[in-house]
Design a binder for these strands. Structure first.
Lengths: 131, 131
DNA sequence: ACGCTAAATCGCCATATAGGAATATGCAAG
DNA sequence: CTTGCATATTCCTATATGGCGATTTAGCGT
């Protein structure tokens, strides 16, 4: 259950270094691609990203997430189900409420990378206008 | 109205994060979330992942990508347009052919992270079956 | 000009999914 | 058991998107 992090494939340290390291082009199976695509799809929705972003501040119950999300309770419930099935969040019943938390640490890395890219692209576009 | 009564910051972090990787929970704007979601959506498709996976081996023209993708030329063309609009690949005309290449190095990181997670989950599920 | 090839685009269909209202379920208090 | 709150689920509609065939566009050689 608990794993003293043996640095899964060295991904942690490579995070902040956008060097042009081309890894050996290992071909992935079709089945693997389907699974990977499913994970990306779970992140391909603004409301779900808002939920994850809120959960980055710590555990929240569903009502709190509904308030933070700007959409209805039914939608949030469905989006949470998607995130849970993708293994990204954990949900536990606590009396009347359901408490949610991020269960997949790679969510942080993925969002961090995307944000960095977004910043870089925006900046590049701004430079293109000025220069 | 209500505040998160139990864990302020520590509980779930102890569960899933080693030590260092907790970024300050910066709230992202709705506009940023839409842009980030769009980038994830570009990766949320097996055929597009196959194209990227192929391009990880170096530049390829569209015909080569069609052969590697297992789907039709029209589809590949549309998928390539999606990846280009997401800023992940570059395309240049070279005589009759169009040569494609990965233009966003974060693609490597993102796929690497997803593959690691996939391996970890699959392994955990296998352990759960064996006991 | 023509034909040929590579790639992009269009039209259509089928499916997936986000959104929302209504309803059902689970749980605790009285 | 009944009431009330917090979530989940169901049903529905609108939209987005993938796949495919057919057509169009683009560039090279003749």
């Amino acid at each position: 259950m608990k794993h003293p992090p043996p640095s899964p494939a060295g991904t942690f340290l490579n995070l902040c270094m956008p060097s042009k390291t081309a890894p050996p082009p290992k071909a992935l199976s079709d089945a693997a691609l389907v699974l990977i695509a499913a994970r990306f799809r779970a992140l391909a929705e603004p409301v779900r990203l808002r939920l994850l972003n809120t959960l980055m501040g710590g555990e929240r119950n569903v009502t709190q997430l509904v308030e933070a999300s700007g959409t209805g309770q039914a939608n949030v419930s469905k989006h949470l189900a998607v995130l849970r099935e993708a293994g990204m969040i954990a949900m536990r019943r606590e009396g009347l409420t359901t408490v949610c938390s991020i269960s997949d640490p790679s969510v942080y890395q993925l969002c961090e990378i995307m944000c960095s890219r977004l910043r870089a692209d925006t900046e590049a576009r701004a430079r293109a206008l000025d220069g």
